[in-house]
């Protein structure tokens, strides 16, 4: 009663998730690079590339529903398909956040740079690391590594707060001229929105890690960190 065809199709579904993860990671890396290097051409490529990620999400949905309906998977296979559907949804939302970062970056590129915000680089670093580790934990089905990711979310939250605090203080300090003050506020608000997008990506990476632990061990670790 070996189900070779089903497992071949399940392997194909996993390969589609790897493809989506690679695309989402490229979007995240490019979004961060475009912001840090003020590269509006690179930012535009992220907006243009989002459609491909949306298509992969639809493909994963279609494959997953088909396997659920026709193969009636059990145990780890069932958890894998349910987990993949959740993970692909989270990765699609990560890609959307990258588009949001890219749109803000294009605005920022049209104006002089703001004062450096060191916490922003730290936030970019931890966010990229969390997504990278979550995807690796999925690839290796490594529940132990996955369990370590939610704790990093506190660090991301802390950096986000530092960015917010720094930019609000900067806005509160007086600048000569009404128009300059308005421009500063607009740039700082766009940067704050970028930091919120990164913080959401860290949250979604935590979700992915939680789904990996669920797939690997059948235990739901969601919300444990917050209880």
């Amino acid at each position: 009663m070996e189900r070779q065809n089903f497992h071949k199709e399940l392997d194909h579904l996993k390969m589609t998730v790897y493809k989506m993860a690679a695309s989402a990671r490229k979007s995240l890396d490019n979004a961060c690079k475009a912001y840090q290097e003020r590269d509006d051409d690179l930012a535009q490529t992220i907006i243009d590339g989002d459609r491909e990620i949306n298509q992969i999400e639809l493909d994963i949905d279609r494959q997953s529903l088909r396997l659920l309906a026709l193969e009636q998977p059990m145990a780890r296979d069932l958890r894998m398909i349910v987990g993949i559907m959740r993970i692909s949804n989270d990765m699609e939302r990560i890609a959307d956040q990258c588009v949001n970062i890219a749109e803000r970056t294009i605005f920022l590129c049209q104006h002089p740079p703001i004062e450096p915000v060191p916490a922003m680089d730290s936030l970019i670093g931890i966010t990229r690391k969390m997504f990278f580790l979550a995807v690796n934990a999925f690839r290796d089905m490594d529940a132990q590594s996955a369990r370590e990711i939610p704790a990093m979310d506190d660090e991301a939250d802390e950096y986000t707060m530092q960015v917010l605090k720094g930019l609000i203080e900067d806005m509160a300090s007086s600048s000569p001229g009404f128009e300059k003050r308005v421009l500063k506020m607009r740039r700082n608000i766009q940067t704050i929105i970028i930091s919120r997008c990164l913080e959401r990506i860290a949250d979604l990476s935590t979700n992915i890690a939680e789904h990996v632990a669920f797939i690997a061990e059948g235990i739901n670790i969601k919300h444990q960190n917050k209880q």
């Binding site: 009663m1 070996e2 189900r3 089903f6 497992h7 998977p73 059990m74 145990a75 780890r76 296979d77 069932l78 958890r79 061990e217 059948g218 235990i219």
Partner: peptide, 19 residues
């Protein structure tokens, strides 16, 4: 048993990895 079996042998059977 059907969502989170304790033993690999059970898991392998119910997921159709042997039979």
């Amino acid at each position: 048993l059907f969502t989170r079996p304790q033993l690999k042998q059970t898991e392998d059977y119910i997921t159709g990895r042997f039979g």
